[in-house]
Design a protein around this nucleic acid. Structure first.
Length: 459
DNA sequence: ATGACATGATCCC
DNA sequence: TGGGATCCCTGTCA
């Protein structure tokens, strides 16, 4: 068993000075059921003898110091959660980390085995409203009858830019100048304030100007030529307030629709071409698509289980449309949970067809073991920009490959860029390397093996 | 190699 | 209801 060789790992020291029913000194296999799965688990228990003072009636209960490994999640013994090599072992007492359903672990979650299982089909819609009539006549008539195909490149190159001093929070490509990328980090200085940049956009009228909004309630405009920023709006001049503003100055009763989510919504985007769809990313590990903003918005048309949990140390995940997809179905989003790729724990960037829920491509780099919560696809070119911690990643498709490509693959493509081997497209064996690697730092140690020169990209 | 720490939604009393 | 405790796959630096 993989746990056997970890005698040097830190042990949890538990001190017990309580009643008999909670004392584990007398347990001889009567722990819990999970203990039987780990018979070789070391259990060291020491009883500290307590002197009974003469004249005292009651003998104080013995102090029991139990030295045994416990699960870091549920603090129970008999199992351990955490990385075993590059494979993460869930705590079996907790619900599935992916779909949040109890009864199974992430390893055996049906949504992990086949992602399309997580798709919930659209419910029957009410198509009797006048808005639906207008939608059918004016908007849907322009949409093609046959779904146009999106293009998934066969090969990609990756370039790394280490520029930011804090984690990347937003990315935006220039609308007309294809080689300009705007990126913001957690503590980008705006004026004299250090604030968290929540969103950024280029100006439509003047493409040398970029607008940024920040979590402190300010909106600023920055001249890209001079780098000079101007504060345009400050919604919190007197300090921080827990306040929602409606830019149209309308009351809450004039809300057009309310899209129900199980948890906090990280992002909501209209589809880039027609604006008929809404894509939302929620912290309940679901990506939702509302197919028609004029239809029944009580339920999403699609609900896709995807790992993008909230973590206070990570920028919130946001699923983003592919602006080049004429069918408005392809989205990109980073993945939280890792997969064991040839002994390296990697967090891929997923391309999901929301019309089917299928994972059509996953992008990762053996040098990038960090999570990539921020992703932006280029409006014209086959380029993906990712923010992974403080590093900017630029994934670029090889021109000759994607131009020859006509049909999307049935199986998800994997773009694994290995520096030591220059390039690899093949699927690694998920089981190889993981079980044989007992080190808790296996994923980092393996990743170092693949270090090499990064390819310089000109784009 | 290891520990400290940053810091936000949620749980629970 | 509110505030403190808690926290499952982090990432970086000292």
């Amino acid at each position: 068993m993989p746990f056997a060789s970890s005698s040097s790992r830190p042990r949890f020291l538990r001190r017990e000075a309580d009643s008999d029913e909670e004392s584990e000194t007398s347990s001889s296999g009567g722990e819990d059921d999970l203990e039987e799965d780990f018979p070789e688990e070391a259990q060291v228990e020491e009883d500290a003898a307590v002197e009974v003072a003469p004249g005292k009636r009651k003998k104080p209960p013995p102090i029991t110091i139990s030295l045994k490994r416990v699960c870091k999640v549920c603090k129970q013994s008999g199992h351990e959660a955490g990385f075993r090599g590059a494979t993460y072992i869930d705590c079996p007492r907790k619900p599935c980390f992916l779909c949040k359903t109890p009864g199974h672990t992430t390893m055996f979650c049906p949504h992990r085995v086949a992602m399309e299982h997580g798709v919930i089909p659209a419910p029957a819609r009410n198509t009797k409203t006048p808005l639906d009539y207008i939608f059918m006549r004016q908007l849907k008539a322009k949409t093609p009858k046959i779904k146009p195909v999106y293009v998934i490149p066969d090969q990609v190159d990756c370039g790394l830019i280490r520029f930011h001093s804090r984690r990347v929070t937003c990315l935006e490509f220039h609308p007309t100048k294809s080689n300009i990328l705007l990126s913001g980090d957690k503590f980008l200085k705006l004026g004299s304030k250090k604030v968290m940049i929540s969103s950024s956009r280029f100006s439509l009228g003047n493409d040398a100007m970029a607008y940024t909004s920040s979590s402190d309630g300010t909106v600023s405009c920055t001249d890209m030529e001079t780098g000079i920023g101007t504060l345009l709006l400050d919604l919190n001049p007197d300090g921080w307030n827990a306040r929602i503003w409606d830019a149209r100055r309308l009351g809450t009763e004039s809300c057009l629709a309310s899209l129900a989510h199980g948890r906090v919504v990280n992002s909501a985007y209209f589809s880039p071409l027609t604006g008929n769809k809404i894509l939302t990313t929620s912290q309940d590990n679901r990506i939702r698509v509302w197919d028609s903003i004029f239809g029944n918005l009580e339920h999403p048309s699609r609900e896709i289980v995807h790992s993008h949990d909230f973590n206070r140390h990570l920028t919130p995940f946001r699923a983003e449309w592919d602006p080049k997809d004429p069918s408005e179905s392809l989205v990109v989003i980073g993945r939280y949970i890792s997969e064991n790729y040839d002994g390296v724990a990697l967090h891929p960037i997923d391309f999901i067809d929301t019309s089917t829920g299928k994972l059509v491509a996953e992008v990762m780099d053996t040098d990038v073991t960090t999570i990539s919560p921020v992703n932006k696809l280029h409006p014209q070119d086959h380029i993906l920009a990712s923010g992974s911690s403080r590093t900017l990643l630029i994934w670029k498709a090889r021109q000759e490959d994607w131009e020859a490509k006509k049909q999307p693959e049935k199986r998800p493509k994997q773009f694994i860029f290995r520096r030591s081997e220059k390039k690899s497209n093949g699927k690694f064996d998920s089981d190889s390397g993981g079980d044989s690697d007992d080190s808790s730092n296996g994923k980092k140690r393996k990743a170092k093996k693949c270090q090499g020169k990064h390819k310089k990209l000109v784009w």
